[in-house]
C-alpha cells in the first residue's frame, strides 16, 4: 500500500483521489440527453462510420478499385444487354411503323370510288396515311415485277382488284387487328389483310432476349452479392479484435455493423460509376459500326447512349446491392464475433 501511495502515478492523481464526492454525485451532470443531442450524436456516428469506411478503402486503392471493377463487370453485362435490346426494340418500332394493312376492293369498284374510300380512311382514327392503287396501276406493277408481262396481256380482263394501302399510327398487335376489322367492314372492301407474322417473330425474339437478360441478371446479381460478401468478410476478419473490443465496451450489433454497411454501399457506388462509364464508352464505341451498317440499309439509325434515368437506376441498384451484400455478410459473421 505504501509503495502504491508513493508511486509517481498516485502522486499525480492525488488531487482527484482526494475528492470526497462519491462517484454517483459526480455523474449528476449526466442528465438524460435531449432529442437534438441524440440526433446530433446519431448523425455524428454515421458521419464517422462513413469517413472511416472511406479511409479504409482509400488505404487499399488498388484492391478497392479491382473489387469495384469486378462488380462493375457483373453489373455491366446484364445492363448492357438490356440497353442493346432496348435499341433493337426501337429499331423494330421504326419498322413496325411501316407496317401496312392492304384493303383489296371489290372488282366492280372504280377508281373514283377507290379514291373516295382512301380519303375517307385517311380521316379515321388510328390511321396515319392511306394510298389508293387502281386496278390498272396494280396490273402494270405486277407485269413489271413478275416478268409475265406478255402472258398477262393475253388475259381477257384485268383480274387484279384496286387496293388501298393503309398505314396505321399504332403498331400494337391488338390495335392493328381492331383497325383491320373496322376497315374490312367498309363498303366496297372485299378483303383486309394484315401481315403480323414478322412483328410477332420480332416480339418473340425480344421476349426471349428479355428472359435471357433476366436470367443473366439473377445469376450476376448473385455473383455480385458473393463478391461483396466475401470482400466484407475479409474486412471483418481483419478487424476481428477491434470488433471484439467494441462489443466488450458496449457496442451494439448495429454499431458494429454500420461501417461495413457503408463499406458495402461505397463498393456498390464505385462499381455503379465504373459500370456507367464502361457502358457509355462501350455503346459509343459500338455506335460507329452500327451507324455504318444502318447507312448501308438507307437508315439513319444510331444506338442511344445510357439514358440518365437508366444510369441513375444502375447507380442506385449497385449501392443497394453493395449494402445488401454487406448486410448478409455481417449478419452471417456477427454471431461468430462474440468477445473471447
Amino acid at each position: 500500500m505504501s509503495a502504491t501511495r508513493g508511486s509517481k502515478v498516485s502522486e499525480r492523481v492525488a488531487p482527484k483521489a482526494a475528492d470526497p464526492q462519491p462517484a454517483r454525485k459526480k455523474h449528476d451532470d449526466d442528465d438524460g440527453p435531449g432529442f437534438s443531442m441524440l440526433f446530433r450524436a446519431w448523425v455524428e456516428a454515421h458521419r464517422a462510420s462513413l469517413l472511416d469506411s472511406l479511409k479504409r478503402l482509400g488505404k487499399q486503392p488498388i484492391g478497392s478499385f479491382f473489387t469495384c471493377l469486378v462488380m462493375a463487370v457483373a453489373l455491366s453485362l446484364p445492363m448492357g444487354l438490356s440497353l442493346l435490346l432496348n435499341n433493337v426494340e426501337r429499331l423494330g418500332g421504326s419498322w413496325q411503323r411501316a407496317a401496312q394493312i392492304s384493303l383489296y376492293l371489290q372488282l366492280d369498284a372504280d377508281s373514283s370510288q377507290g379514291e373516295q374510300l382512301s380519303n375517307q380512311i385517311k380521316g379515321m382514327a388510328g390511321v396515319a396515311d392511306a394510298e389508293f392503287i387502281s386496278r390498272e396501276k396494280a396490273l402494270e406493277e405486277f407485269q413489271q415485277q413478275s416478268g409475265l408481262g406478255e402472258a398477262l396481256k393475253e388475259l381477257p380482263d384485268n383480274p387484279l382488284p384496286g387496293v388501298v394501302l393503309v398505314t396505321p399510327n399504332e403498331v400494337d398487335k391488338a390495335t392493328l387487328e381492331a383497325l383491320r376489322e373496322r376497315l374490312s367492314e367498309l363498303p366496297k372492301v372485299q378483303q383486309a389483310q394484315l401481315d403480323l407474322v414478322w412483328v410477332e417473330r420480332l416480339a418473340a425474339i425480344l421476349k426471349l432476349g428479355d428472359r435471357f437478360v433476366f436470367g443473366l441478371t439473377v445469376l450476376l446479381v448473385s455473383a455480385l452479392l458473393l463478391v461483396i460478401g466475401n470482400t466484407i468478410r475479409l474486412h471483418i476478419e481483419n478487424r476481428r479484435i477491434e470488433i471484439e473490443v467494441i462489443k466488450l465496451v458496449g457496442g451494439t450489433d448495429s454499431y458494429v455493423r454500420r461501417p461495413f454497411l457503408y463499406m458495402g454501399a461505397l463498393y456498390g457506388f464505385g462499381a455503379g460509376v465504373l459500370s456507367w462509364g464502361v457502358l457509355a464508352f462501350g455503346l459509343n464505341w459500338l455506335n460507329d459500326a452500327v451507324v455504318g451498317l444502318a447507312g448501308l440499309y438507307g437508315s439513319n439509325f444510331a444506338l442511344a447512349g445510357v439514358p440518365v434515368a437508366d444510369g441513375l437506376s444502375l447507380l442506385l441498384g449497385a449501392v443497394l446491392l453493395g449494402y445488401i451484400g454487406a448486410w448478409i455478410a455481417v449478419a452471417r459473421h456477427l454471431r461468430e464475433l462474440s468477445p473471447k
Partner: peptide, 19 residues
C-alpha cells in the same frame, strides 16, 4: 513489481471515486 504497484494505485484512486 514497481509498475504493478503503480497500476494498483490507479485502481484504488478510481475506487475512491465510488466505482
Amino acid at each position: 513489481p514497481r509498475l504493478a504497484a503503480e497500476i494498483m494505485g490507479v485502481f484504488e484512486d478510481i475506487n475512491r471515486l465510488g466505482t
